[in-house]
């Protein structure tokens, strides 16, 4: 464990808490892409299958349980409890355009051809594009609530911090995982446009508005 990965995990945790807070306080999931939340739930479900077979540490197991449970609660809130506030008309990204190519790629490019490893690889690839429905929805609505932009900033920062973690682990531990690094870079690059808008607008107290 290193400081970059720890701050990254805390940033990820913060993002999820911010989203749940937003939905609970405003009793609404307006502006949130349910499709991205489904993809995140799928990412955790396929990545943490070793939750009961490989014990790494109490921290690792606790965080896995937290991510799996909160992602399911988020999907539940969006599609059941606050369904009336779900903006389906703007959340129209076709999930099959992401899941099918990612699934195929996981089959072709992985570290070893075992079910657990292929599912882990699928999860890594899927996470790198899971935010696309959310970004697509924001480009269609042309704006985002401030709390939603904080959620996205924390979510995008987590994987950017993981890149620093991989640099650290490469130089100090000789650890290197090409699949995780490439996917992590793609994931972070997808946020660049949003990061620019967040830093130039939201941090100056303005509302986040995208050039629709």
């Amino acid at each position: 464990m290193n400081i970059f990965r720890l701050i990254g995990d805390m940033s990820h945790l913060l993002a999820i808490v911010l989203l749940l807070l937003k939905m609970w306080k405003t009793r609404s999931c307006a502006g949130i892409s349910g499709k991205s939340q489904i993809l995140f739930a799928l990412v955790f479900a396929t990545r943490y299958l070793d939750l009961f077979t490989a014990f790494i540490s109490a921290y690792n197991s606790t965080m896995k349980l937290f991510f799996i449970s909160t992602s399911l609660v988020t999907v539940y809130l969006m599609y059941f409890k606050f369904r009336a506030t779900y903006d389906a008309n703007h959340d129209t990204f076709r999930l099959e355009f992401l899941v099918v190519p990612v699934g195929g790629l996981a089959f072709l490019v992985n570290h070893n051809f075992s079910p657990l490893e292929i599912l882990w690889t699928f999860s890594i690839y899927l996470e790198s594009v899971a935010i696309l429905p959310q970004l697509f929805m924001m480009s269609k609505t042309g704006e985002a609530e401030t709390i939603t932009s904080h959620y996205l900033f924390a979510l995008g920062s987590y994987r950017a911090l993981y890149i620093l973690n991989w640099v650290f682990r490469y130089y100090f531990e000789g650890f290197f995982d090409l699949i995780a690094v490439v996917a992590g870079c793609v994931q972070t690059i997808l946020y660049c446009d949003f990061f620019y808008l967040y830093i130039t607008k939201v941090l100056k107290g303005k509302k986040l508005s995208l050039p629709a």
Binding site: D50, A54, I56, N60, K64, H111, N112
Partner: peptide, 10 residues
């Protein structure tokens, strides 16, 4: 075991 150990990231 090494494989499982390696997957120590979230």
């Amino acid at each position: 075991y090494l494989q499982a150990q390696e997957k120590d990231e979230l």
